[in-house]
Amino acid sequence: MIPSDSIPDIISNNQINVIRLVNPGYIGGGGSTGSGCIINKQYGLLVTNVHIANDIRQLNCHYLIKTSDNKIISRYRNGRVLYCEPYRDLALVSLEFTGSDDKDNELTDQFVLADQKPADFGEQLICIGYPKPYRLQSMTLGYVCCGRRTFNETMFSYSVSSFIHHSSGTISGYSGGPLIDEMGRLAGIHHIL
């Protein structure tokens, strides 16, 4: 159980690790938005859902950085999709830092990954994401409802396995956002079923 007085600290320590992603070439050309999680600040690597990346090679990424005087500043970069694993609904994306005309990699933090053990039944998780159509983060809090399970995703013609079923609010735009445990670690990636 996450103590209620520690929830604001967990959120403020991790909000800069959550990225808003825009896929302008989503099915039907209408565009799509979701969230992503920074897992390696040195190389600008993040994870999101395959259904956000959806077989394109570039995403528009909006992220936050913390300055030396603790101010939060918004930044925009392109992201290149490096790898997609449809059976886990995970995509690996690299932020593109162009070099000379642009600032170097300015990411200031990344998620600490939780142990590989499955989340426990009844464990509380925090979910942070960018709900559509807003450009501000929000959060929900929920519990692990049952063990890992497999889901047949008919929209994209593949089965996705090893889901953590949780009771956090399912808000459009949260897909790809983090499920954070009581230690502030990345325990999973949000996907709306």
Rank of each mutant, 00 (worst) to 15 (best):
G28H: 11
D5L: 10
L95S: 01
Y87R: 10
T140N: 03
G99Y: 12
L113Q: 13
S175F: 13
L45H: 09
T108Q: 09
T170M: 14
S172R: 08
G122D: 01
F111I: 09
I11R: 06
N152D: 15
I56Q: 07
S94T: 09
D181Y: 08
G99V: 06
P133I: 00
E153C: 13
F97H: 06
Q15D: 10
I171L: 06
Q124K: 12
I10N: 10
Y76C: 08
N152R: 13
L107I: 02
G184W: 12
L186Y: 01
D109Q: 08
L141H: 02
S68W: 12
S162I: 05
I10H: 10
N105G: 07
T150I: 14
S175Y: 11
I72K: 00
H62N: 10
N105M: 08
G29Q: 01
D5A: 01
S138V: 06
S4P: 15
I38G: 05
E153Y: 11
H165F: 02
V22G: 00
G177V: 11
I164H: 07
S138L: 06
Y158M: 12
N17M: 12
N105W: 10
D181R: 02
R88F: 14
G28T: 08
T48K: 00
K41R: 05
Y158E: 13
S167C: 12
A114F: 11
S138Y: 06
T108A: 07
N105Y: 07
I10P: 08
E153W: 05
S138F: 04
I11F: 09
E182I: 04
I7L: 08
Y130K: 02
L82K: 01
Q110K: 12
H51K: 00
